[in-house]
Structures are given as structure tokens and as C-alpha cells.
Simulated assay, not measured.
Amino acid sequence: MEDQQNPNVVVAVQTKSMGLSLILTFFFGPLGMLYSTILGGIIMFFVEVFVGLFTFGFGLLLTHPICMIWGAVATNTYNEKLLKRYQ
């Protein structure tokens, strides 16, 4: 009986772009966060709607940068886990 060799498996997964994450979040807020973190985008969507309504939009000056930071951290975390898994 012949020895069967295990085939080599190549996994090609691309990392997420930090620049694209920041640009999408800057222009689209929590909807742009969906690129980097789906749950975070959904949470911040409702937070921004709530804050925007009750502060007449002024609270978005605080929540919008939080979205950008959260998106950047989520992108970085995703990339680190991905690279650690396939090294």
C-alpha cells in the first residue's frame, strides 16, 4: 500500500487596512465601523442615534472620535490575531 502524503494547505487571508478603517469611520461613523467590527458598529449606531437626539447633535463631537478609535483598535486586534494564527 502506498504512503499517502498530506497535501499542503495554503490559507490566503488578507489583513484589514488601518487607513481604510479610519477613512470609512471618519466619513460614515458607525456604519464605517462595520468594516472593522460588526458588533461595535451596531452598538455605536444606536449610541450615536441616542446621543445625537438628546444633545441636538453636539454629543456626536464626542462619540464620533470614539467610533474612530474603536474601529482602529478592532482592526489592529483582528490583524494581530490573524498573523499570530498563521505564523
Rank of each mutant, 00 (worst) to 15 (best):
38 I>A: 01
85 R>V: 13
87 Q>H: 02
40 G>T: 04
40 G>C: 12
65 P>I: 03
17 S>P: 08
2 E>W: 12
77 T>C: 05
22 L>R: 03
12 A>T: 14
55 T>L: 15
11 V>N: 13
30 P>N: 07
83 L>T: 15
52 G>H: 00
46 F>C: 11
5 Q>I: 14
21 S>C: 07
46 F>L: 10
65 P>V: 00
76 N>T: 11
79 N>R: 05
26 F>R: 06
24 L>D: 08
7 P>S: 11
2 E>Q: 14
69 I>N: 11
1 M>L: 15
63 T>K: 06
29 G>K: 03
81 K>P: 08
78 Y>F: 07
67 C>N: 08
35 Y>N: 07
10 V>K: 07
6 N>I: 13
62 L>C: 02
38 I>C: 08
19 G>S: 09
82 L>M: 13
63 T>I: 05
26 F>C: 02
84 K>N: 11
42 I>L: 10
66 I>C: 10
78 Y>E: 05
26 F>W: 10
77 T>V: 10
1 M>R: 14
51 V>C: 13
21 S>F: 06
42 I>F: 07
49 V>P: 04
80 E>H: 09
66 I>D: 04
5 Q>L: 10
23 I>Y: 02
26 F>E: 00
7 P>N: 12
55 T>M: 02
58 F>N: 01
79 N>A: 03
65 P>Q: 05
39 L>P: 05
65 P>S: 00
40 G>K: 09
60 L>P: 02
84 K>D: 04
86 Y>P: 07
17 S>T: 09
64 H>Q: 11
60 L>I: 05
20 L>C: 08
38 I>D: 04
14 Q>D: 12
33 M>Y: 12
78 Y>L: 02
80 E>V: 15
51 V>I: 14
26 F>Q: 10
21 S>W: 06
79 N>F: 09
86 Y>G: 06
15 T>N: 11
45 F>W: 11
62 L>W: 06
26 F>K: 08
43 I>H: 11
79 N>E: 06
12 A>S: 15
16 K>D: 12
43 I>A: 15
64 H>R: 00
38 I>K: 10
38 I>S: 10
87 Q>R: 13
56 F>S: 01
2 E>G: 12
24 L>I: 05
7 P>F: 10
12 A>V: 15
28 F>C: 08
1 M>F: 14
